[in-house]
């Protein structure tokens, strides 16, 4: 049941990316180009997605999900160097290509060499993180 729900919401999420313009790198780069020919329209993607999620979150905070299982953990408010460093690296990559992880997956709907290369390298970046993280954990056992 949970997997079926996740599949359906994944499809809806992808259509949201497509209809909003987030799935087109040139639109994303136009949104990020605030000091150039700025296209602010993508602000409204977060502007409508966030309040909808917020309503659901605060309506159900601390409660168990409808399909069972534990209640989700509360929001995190801590800040650390890893988060800042990760956000900075992510920002450089996003700014270079205009592609973030969701759109990297929807690009498969119209396959191109560049899109496949981005996705493959993104997965390699994740695996590289796993190796680095395991080494770090090994060097400083908690």
């Amino acid at each position: 049941m949970k997997a079926a729900a996740a599949l359906a919401f994944g499809v809806l999420f992808a259509w949201g990316l497509g209809i909003s313009g987030m799935s087109r790198p040139e639109v994303v780069l136009g949104f990020l180009d605030i000091l150039g020919d700025w296209n602010p329209a993508l602000m409204f993607v977060m502007g409508s997605a966030v309040p909808i999620y917020m309503a659901a979150w605060f309506a159900r905070v601390g409660k168990r999900p409808l399909l069972g299982g534990p209640a989700p953990k509360g929001a995190r408010h801590d800040l650390d160097g890893r988060m800042f460093a990760g956000a900075a690296l992510f920002g450089v990559g996003w700014g270079l290509c205009g592609i973030c992880p969701g759109p990297a997956l929807t690009l498969l709907g119209r396959p191109s060499a560049g899109g496949l290369l981005f996705l493959a390298c993104m997965l390699c970046g994740m695996l590289l993180y796993r190796v680095v993280d395991a080494r770090r954990a090994g060097a400083n056992p908690a």
Partner: peptide, 24 residues
């Protein structure tokens, strides 16, 4: 097409994947 040149897409993909995990 994904827009950018292939080397840039490779570098961007690596940074996005690694950075997203490091940044949580």
């Amino acid at each position: 097409s994904a827009g950018s040149s292939l080397p840039l897409l490779g570098l961007g993909g690596l940074l996005v994947g690694f950075g997203a995990r490091l940044g949580g």
